[in-house]
Simulated scan of single mutants.
Amino acid sequence: MASKFNGIEEEASRLESGVAASTNSTSSQARCSESFWSSPAVVTTAQKVVAELIGTYFVIFAGCGSVAVNKIYGQVTFPGVCVTWGLIVMVMVYTVRHVSGAHFNPAVTITSALLGRFPWKNVPLYIIAHLVGSILASGTLSLMFNVTKEAYFGTLPVGSNRQSFAIEIVISFLLMFVVSGVGTDSRAVGELGGIAIGMTIMLNVFVAGPISGASMNPARSIGPAIVKREYRGIWVYIFGPIIGTIAGGFAYNLIRFTNKPINELAKSSSFLKGKSGNGST
């Protein structure tokens, strides 16, 4: 009989230990989950992604909105469209650059990561934010205006695809070259960065707008294309800006000041990495 009671007590002890272990495990998991969502790194990344989404939304809303209004009502004029693009980019750069770097452009994000100025783990999050912001803005414009085929506010090659592809590479090169100079070089006057970037956008639209639409940004073209189901020449506006921005970013890094000899740069490849900051579009 005593051995039976001893067996019952041992079983009860094991059960209690199991319950305690289970409780401790659940409590530990809860603490881990709580610490994850309250982690400063997670909160900061979420803030950056939201800033990029909102920034991209208003860049596309204002820029593409000016295109739609001009085509429907004819009151903005082509110079007005160019100025609108430059102003909205400048405004949003000054608004969220200190939060997220103000990329608003998948090509800028990819180039910044390649040059070592942006963590690769955040690249997919930024690209998703850019695409979602562009799609939401395009959907808003589509609901607000009677956007016919003639009033399409996306980008389509006016001439050949190759012509638009070439000019997208050139103007995207210029944009990233300027961004690298005023946005990532510590010797530049940082307070004027937004103005320089906005002016570059405006000048590029003046030159390339009548030819390719002057996208310089895959998200700028993909959003309207998805909403209006217009995919003609879409590859031009995906690969052209990416190639141009990568080339522009690497070109600026070749002239970035350094006191290291050429043979040391060749060994370490440190000339591929910028000194500070995130790029902005």
Rank of each mutant, 00 (worst) to 15 (best):
P241W: 05
E11L: 12
L125H: 11
R14A: 14
P210A: 06
Y94H: 15
I226C: 11
I255K: 08
I242A: 05
I246W: 01
I197N: 03
A21P: 01
G194I: 03
L174W: 07
G55P: 08
G248T: 03
G86N: 00
V207L: 13
G65W: 02
M92A: 04
R232F: 09
N105D: 08
H103V: 05
Y57C: 06
S22C: 03
L265G: 09
G279Q: 05
G223L: 01
A46G: 14
S13F: 08
Q75C: 10
S25Q: 12
V91T: 15
P40R: 11
K260C: 09
V50G: 07
F173I: 00
S22A: 13
M92T: 03
T109N: 08
A21F: 07
M144C: 12
G213F: 00
A51M: 04
A225G: 06
M202E: 01
D185K: 10
V189G: 06
L114G: 02
K267W: 07
N259C: 08
N122K: 15
F177S: 03
L192T: 12
T184S: 13
L192P: 01
R229E: 09
V99Q: 05
V178R: 06
N24W: 00
K121W: 11
G223V: 00
L156G: 00
A113Y: 01
